[in-house]
């Protein structure tokens, strides 16, 4: 009976959503039109999604990186460090060897996504997650001790802090240069020729900061969850 009520409630809410979606009309998308028209020239990035994320709306990105930061902080505190018992020695030597050879490739892929974020799909978040996969592979295939010996909790935490601080400091450059927080082109960051690797003003640097922060944060989250008795 209770399930029926739940179903009716869910259907009511969902039909409200549906009504809203179908009531939408075509309007003048002034924000995106402006971004599409002037974005390349003003930000130096050709990937508009990255240009919006890291330049026009960089403040949002600082905020979302902060959310991961907070989540990693509390999860690592909530699940205290203990011996791992799961996922240990289930893999053969072959897997160990092959994973060891895969890790550099994963690293290059992650770095590529971070560095080329302003030119192609990807960017700091995606690249950061790929970098976190390295630490996760260490934990899953070998064990937690191995993973922690490669990159201890405090190191990851430090990387996370530094990444976050780097983001804010890059933002402050904008203020020092006489513009406002998180300014890129206006603050004299090198915009370059759109489409080249050295372009996009502050975007590549912000991408790197976010990549480091997200990678370290997710690795902390995963390793914390896997800890415990």
């Amino acid at each position: 009976m209770r399930k029926l009520y739940c179903l009716i409630l869910a259907i009511l809410l969902a039909s409200m959503f549906f009504m809203a979606f179908s009531g939408l009309q075509e309007v003048d998308m002034e924000l995106s039109n402006f971004y599409l028209e002037t974005g390349v020239e003003e930000t130096g990035a050709i990937n508009m999604v990255t240009a919006i994320l890291f330049d026009y709306r960089g403040f949002d990105t600082l905020g979302e990186a902060t959310v991961i930061f907070a989540a990693a902080t509390i999860i690592s505190f909530l699940l205290p460090k203990k011996q791992t018992t799961m996922l240990k020695d289930d893999f053969s030597l072959l897997v160990h060897k092959s994973i060891k050879s895969v890790i550099p490739i994963v690293f290059i892929l992650g770095v590529y996504l971070v560095v080329f974020g302003h030119l192609s799909p990807g960017g700091g978040f995606t690249g950061g997650v790929i970098l976190a996969v390295i630490a996760i592979l260490w934990t899953v295939v070998f064990d937690l001790e191995y993973s922690e010996s490669k990159l201890s909790y405090s190191t990851k935490s430090l990387i996370e802090d530094l990444g976050a601080l780097a983001f804010v400091i890059i933002g402050l450059f904008g203020m020092i240069a006489g513009s406002t927080f998180l300014a890129s082109g206006q603050a004299g960051f090198y915009l370059g020729t759109p489409g080249e690797i050295l372009s996009g003003g502050a975007i590549p640097y912000l991408n790197m900061a976010v990549g480091a922060k997200v990678g370290a944060g997710l690795a902390i989250i995963f390793n914390s969850l896997i800890k415990g008795e």
């Binding site: 998308m29 924000l31 995106s32 971004y35 599409l36 508009m48 999604v49 240009a51 919006i52 994320l53 709306r57 949002d60 990105t61 905020g63 979302e64 960017g123 978040f125």
Partner: peptide
């Protein structure tokens, strides 16, 4: 591109 950027967030 705007909703895509928001979706990533």
């Amino acid at each position: 591109p705007v909703p895509q950027a928001l979706a990533l967030t």
